[in-house]
Amino acid sequence: MKHEGLFTPYRIAEARIENRITRTLIFDAPMEGIQPGQYVMAWLPGCGEKPFSISGDEPLAITVADVGSFSHALTQLEQGDPVWIRGPFGVGFSLSGERHLLVGGGYGAAPLSLLARCAMEKGHTVAVALGAKTESDLMLVSIFRKMGCQVYLATEDGSVGVKGLVTGVLEKAFVEINPETLYACGPNPMLMRLARITREENLPVQLSFEALIRCGVGLCGSCELPEAVCLKLGIRPGFLICHDGPVVRV
């Protein structure tokens, strides 16, 4: 029976382990009409409600890192358990050009895997640069490789790939791929570094930001990207992550 309510209960078909703290919850039904980079609001009655990027649409999937009380509750769920979902929300990535460089930090790799799939289906060239603290924190590496993406890795301890931050592998990717657009999802400091680097390279960039999402419908103002950040990025102040984003086009 199609649920006519506000949230749609999706049941977990599989909880795939991605790394030490991260699981991908693959649900039992698709979500139609989504754009990579958009997010859903996931509600567990009595526990809370938070935004998660969509990491798969057929069926719907979200990839959750266990960092606090709500994400912990989500990662403890098992096959058959329901999660109440509303969405998709926000403005996601849009492919521009035919050679793409995707840069992910942490669970940022998850929404990028959906974007990579869309680009590969069009026969485009896709390179993916992933960064993490150590090898066991990296995720989805084999999935990107299986899709046929060129993969660049960086770890802070040098356990695999280049030692250091993910920005350290970009130079090589720029030369080898000559990307027309860079797309990134990960911690805000990484995004700000990417904004600077791409400005120097004169490369169009789409960055997926995070903020405290409360209403999720562009009314409460809680998710505003700080004015100082907007000015640094060269976008108009008053940017709402939940409604105008989460993806910022610079």
Binding site: C220, G221, E224, C230, P237, G238, L240
Partner: peptide
């Protein structure tokens, strides 16, 4: 009141979009 009235930049944005007056949160 209570709709985007939380910062100078958001209130300015609403004015730029055509609001004749602005109420803060």
């Amino acid at each position: 009141s209570g709709i985007l009235g939380t910062s100078p930049s958001l209130m300015e944005r609403c004015a730029l979009e055509g609001a004749g007056g602005i109420t803060s949160k």
